[in-house]
Design a protein around this nucleic acid. Structure first.
Lengths: 136, 136
DNA sequence: CGCTTGACTTAGACAGTGTCCATTGTAGGA
DNA sequence: TCCTACAATGGACACTGTCTAAGTCAAGCG
């Protein structure tokens, strides 16, 4: 049922009820939750789970590369379990809705050598902003 | 001396000592200060300026499109007075150094219609991440 | 199967960043 | 110069995230 959980188990993660619940919440149908939203949903399944545990667990998942941290608004980080298909984000400036998108071009290649200032570039993060159909 | 100040004056901004100081800080040592850093520098010039005023003033400058809000790390917002030449940012993953860069391609065009989900897209924000020469 | 141990969880205090509000001050026009 | 609307003040508050000390438990081992 939970791919995410499978992969984590395979990495020698000690499996606890708390971690299972966090993984389930992320893997469920809700995308791009904040840490506190994850915590709220986790509490529904496991009332005594603490905020710190959710933060720790999310942080570990990010370190393991199983989850991506996104900050599209300038507020709380959001967690995106879709870490295995590279993608970018499209955000509604009005309601904050977020969609995963897959740009065509070679984003890394768009930056000429003369604009790299000796940096070794490893990653490009793109956020498209606009107004979604509902808000238009 | 201060283009920024000129432009703001031209928009009918009520000119106060506080706003002048904030504009000078941004236009001076320029480059990607956080709000609290701006406040610290402003206090050097005008000791009684309050934190709230700096936050308000920066917010107004952003609304007027004279300054851009950047959040490259996932911590404090930074303020970029270089709002009139469209540009993106290159960030060192280790030391946090930030450089303005000017990518070649048509970033907006990179997103095919089929990936727009009915959004009216108005803006693209790109952050290149890597390691700077000093940290390498 | 029960022990042992070190990793995990907990609750709550704390820190950083940003916002709000009631009050006081003041820029700029009449 | 005086008025008034707009701006600044400062301190409380809210949100997000981190840390710590103490208790708990998963999982390997005998």
């Amino acid at each position: 049922m939970s791919d995410l959980l499978e992969r984590l188990r395979g990495r020698g993660w000690r499996m606890t009820a708390q971690r299972r619940v966090v993984a389930e919440v992320l893997d469920g149908d809700h995308m791009h939750l904040t840490a506190d939203e994850v915590h709220a949903r986790a509490v529904d399944k496991l009332p005594e789970i603490s905020r710190a545990t959710v933060y720790n667990t999310l942080g570990e998942m990010v370190s393991l590369g199983e989850v991506i941290e996104v900050s599209t608004d300038h507020r709380a980080k959001r967690y995106d379990p879709n870490a295995h298909r590279p993608h970018q984000h499209l955000v509604c400036a009005r309601c904050g809705a977020i969609r995963d998108v897959h740009p065509a071009g070679n984003l890394l290649g768009d930056l000429p050598d003369t604009e790299r200032f000796g940096f070794t570039i490893s990653d490009v993060e793109v956020t498209y902003r606009g107004i979604c159909p509902n808000c238009a």
